[in-house]
Every structure is written in C-alpha cells, then in structure tokens.
Simulated assay, not measured.
Amino acid sequence: MSTDDEQRIAATYDDFGRRWARGTSPLYEDWAIGIGADPEIVALLAELPRPNQQPNIVFAAARWAGIALRPYPEVRDEIVARWGEIVDIAASRTVQTNEPNRCATLLPALSRIEGPIALLEVGTAAGLCLYPDRYSVEYTTPAGRRRFDPSSGPSDVVLACTVDDEASVPVRHPDIVWRRGIDLAPIDAADPDAIAWLTTLVWPGPDHDVRVARLRAAAAIVAADPPDIVRGDLLDLLPEVAASAPAEATLVVFHSAVLLYLDAGERRRFADLVTSLDRPVVWLSNETMGTLPEIDAQVPMDAATDHRFVQTIDGVAVALAGQHGAVYETLPFR
C-alpha cells in the first residue's frame, strides 16, 4: 500500500501531465502521467527531499544524464538504472526557468509606469527578464500584428505574444536606469554550462523549441552588460536591496513563478514585506492560481487559467499572462 506521500507525488505528476504539459509538451505529458502511475518510480521519488521531487527538476536531470527524449515505456528502465546519477544531478541543480519571453507580458504594465524605473527582480536566475527594454516584441492583436522595438532599434531577440486587446500593446519602452536581482543561486549568463542547464529546463515540444534559441540570444545580451544579482534569500535581502535603488527612480519589484516555491507562510511574509518597504514601490507579480487567496478571489470563475499566471499590480489582478509569455489577456478583468 502506498504512503500518503507517495499518493501526493503520484497526483502531482498526473496533474503536471494532464494540466500543464498537455497541449504544449506531449513528451512531458507522457512522462508525467507514466510516472504518476508507476509505483516503483513514485517510491523512489518519495525518498528524495521534497524540492527534488518536482517534475521539472527530475525531468531535466534525467535529460542531463543522457536519457533520450523518447516515450516513457522506452526510457522507464533506463531511468531506474541511472536513478542514482539523476538524483545527484537534481541535488546539485535548481529549477530556474529564466524565460525572456515573459518580458512581453511585463511590458504592458512597465511601459505605463512613470519613469525613470529602478527594476528589482526576485528569483532572477541569470537576469534575462531584467532587460525588457532590450528586446523586440511582435504582438498579435485582434486588429493584426504590431512590432514593438527598443528605442535603439530592432533587437536580436524577438519575443512573441498574443494579446486580446489592442490597448495592451505597450505605448513605449520603460526608461530603466537601474536593475538588480536577488536569487538563491545566481546564474552567470556568460557561463556556457549554466546556460546549457537553463536550456535543458526548457520543455521539449514544438511550442518550446523556439524558446531555446531565444534564451541563448537573450543570454548573449545579458552577458555583454551583466546585472548585479545578489545571492541570498528574497525574504532576507529584499529590504536591503530595495533601499539601494536610486531615490529619484520609481522602484518596481517584480517576479514570475517564484512564490510557488515558497510555503504559504513564506508567501504571506513576502507579500507583507514588499508592501511595507520604506519607500514607494510598484509590485508587479506573475504567479499561478493558489499562490495567495486574496488574488485567487479576484479571478472570475470561468477564466481559463491553465498555462497562465495571474498578473497583479500592487495586489490587484489585471491580466492573465502565459506561463512562457505567449499570451496576455486583460478581458477577464474588465
């Protein structure tokens, strides 16, 4: 008979496959559902520390170890045979999905904030989302396609996003005069091994293949002008780092898919912390449903939230943003 922990892990993998990977990464859907129904693998997962049980780290570690991108029945025995190597990789690495295309969903808000802007990202990884003003974006709107380039001209990095309202297209690039990040394990965008790991964290599938090339191109931009990323816990460092931002700038604290790695108490601490800083701040958040109850309560019951974050500004829900930046929808909150 399985333990409660094993039942939780099995349900997590099944949900990952059916709700998150389905329709966007067929192979990960197959792997996740297969593992969720595989008592031997689930029992092995139950022996790991909880952060190392999650599908993203296990799948990336398996790929890093050389497991081929083939259907689950074809790789299952090799996963078992190489389990020790997979566990060691998962223990030495972290999940840091540093997706620059998310900037396409941040720009509608950032472009309307009075500048100059001091940009502070918590959970910044390599800092690829600290440079929204350096990327071009092709927005697909109900009225057609709109290209949005930096003031310096077209970028080597071209993001893509579909919006449900023409008014969501940014009016201008934000005037960013200061940018810093906080991360438990900062990534050097100039480190080939670190960037290779980030690309391994990108899910396989036709919807994601373009993300690898875009990530590498964004890393090159960041490596040429690296940001200051402070190593440490966001709950410990946020007040200190925020205080270092220039007083004449509007401080924007932002994050995407970070709070889900905190427990409920830590999420509440962060929300209280960011809203009580000793200076005015704009809090821009992209997080999944279930992160904070007061945010969940603002989302219409019929809203399609699969593969989407709820974007909030100062705790007010304003849009649904694709988890990898592909869509931006404001109509549910009109």
Rank of each mutant, 00 (worst) to 15 (best):
S2W: 12
E6V: 06
I9D: 03
I9W: 03
A10K: 02
D15K: 15
F16C: 14
R19L: 12
E29N: 04
A32T: 08
I33V: 15
I41L: 13
V42K: 07
L44H: 06
L45T: 07
P49I: 09
N52E: 13
A62H: 01
W64C: 14
L69V: 13
P71F: 07
A81V: 06
E85I: 01
D88I: 12
I89N: 00
V95N: 09
V95T: 15
T97P: 03
A109F: 13
A109I: 12
L110M: 12
I113D: 04
P116N: 05
I117E: 15
V122P: 13
T124H: 07
T124A: 15
A125M: 09
A125K: 05
A126R: 02
G127V: 12
Y131N: 11
P132S: 00
D133A: 08
R146K: 12
F148P: 01
D149A: 01
D149T: 01
P150Y: 11
P150I: 15
P154C: 05
D156L: 10
T162H: 08
D165E: 09
D165F: 08
P174N: 07
P174W: 07
I182T: 13
A185W: 08
I187Q: 01
A190S: 13
D191M: 09
P192Q: 12
L198E: 14
L198H: 10
T200Q: 14
W203D: 03
G205T: 02
D209K: 02
V210E: 15
A213Q: 12
R214T: 14
A218S: 10
A220C: 02
I221T: 07
A224Q: 00
D228S: 14
I229S: 00
I229M: 04
R231K: 11
V241Q: 07
V253K: 02
F254E: 07
S256K: 09
L259N: 03
L260V: 14
L262Y: 05
R269K: 13
R269F: 08
D272A: 13
V274N: 03
R279A: 06
R279F: 01
R279D: 01
S285L: 13
N286I: 08
N286V: 06
E287P: 11
T291W: 10
P300Y: 06
H307A: 00
H307K: 01
F309K: 02
V310L: 01
V318W: 06
L320D: 01
H324C: 00
E329T: 10
E329S: 05
T330L: 10
T330I: 11
L331I: 03
L331N: 11
P332C: 09
